[in-house]
């Protein structure tokens, strides 16, 4: 399939925004989720419930909150980030971090029993212990990242609100689909939808291949 340059620009921006958001989300969510999975402290149950709740947060709500924060009349208005790709990254980070943290937590808890004491008795410091168990739980964490990627790139409500769907600036695949639909260009909307599907498929199969290799290696 060949597209006009406009469409490539839109696809490229979608990938850029979501990949950045996932990378930042992983930097925050994986250590946080691993910590939650491995250590107990007062108030942990409440935080776990909050993380699980945030995993199901409606993206539009995230969008509204980020919008209000970044608005010119809001607390972070002076940064002038509203209607920029950065604002979309912020919204998506808020969206995917709880997912990454929650899925890391359960992946880590699954491996915790077997590896915690082994690592500890070999002399792992608390941080080394977290790193070791995260490495052991990597298959589960990767599939969590794939799920988060799919959710972020196919999300429309939040990016529409905080990005603004500005042509050549913040228009991504999902917001372009909405626009084409509203203008009655159903074929164009469908075409973009197929690209979205293809991107999701590529990413998931890429990640699944990784997971599958892990699984095969275990069985060998």
């Amino acid at each position: 399939m060949l597209f006009p340059p406009d469409v490539w620009e839109i696809i490229w921006l979608s990938l850029k925004v979501t990949t950045t958001a996932i990378a930042i989300g992983m930097l925050i969510g994986i250590p946080f989720g691993a910590f939650l999975g491995l250590y107990s402290f007062p108030g942990k149950r409440l935080i776990v419930v909050l993380v699980y709740t945030c995993m199901g947060l409606p993206p539009v709500l995230v969008g509204v909150i980020v919008y209000l924060l970044l608005s010119r009349y809001g607390p972070l208005g002076s940064l002038s980030l509203l209607f920029t790709p950065q604002a979309m990254v912020i919204a998506q980070v808020a969206l995917v971090t709880p997912i990454l943290a929650g899925l890391t937590m359960s992946a880590v808890q699954e491996k915790e029993r077997a590896y915690r004491e082994t690592a500890k008795s070999l002399g792992a410091s608390p941080i080394q212990l977290i790193a070791t168990i995260v490495r052991e739980a990597r298959t589960g964490i990767w599939s969590g990242a794939a799920a988060a990627y799919g959710r972020a790139i196919s999300e429309v409500g939040a990016v529409m609100l905080v990005g603004g769907n500005i042509e050549h600036h913040t228009r991504v695949m999902t917001t372009a689909i909405i626009l084409e639909t509203r203008m009655g260009n159903f074929p164009a909307a469908l075409q973009l939808g197929l690209v979205l599907l293809a991107v999701s498929f590529l990413f998931n199969s890429f990640l699944m291949v990784g997971a599958l290799n892990q699984w095969k290696a275990k069985r060998r």
Binding site: R72, I166, E167, H169
Partner: peptide, 19 residues
């Protein structure tokens, strides 16, 4: 010249934000 691709309400909101 920015093209918002959105409804009137959202476009007004954006104009307000961006002066």
């Amino acid at each position: 010249y920015l093209s918002s691709g959105q409804g009137m309400g959202a476009t007004l909101q954006m104009a307000d934000e961006k002066q």
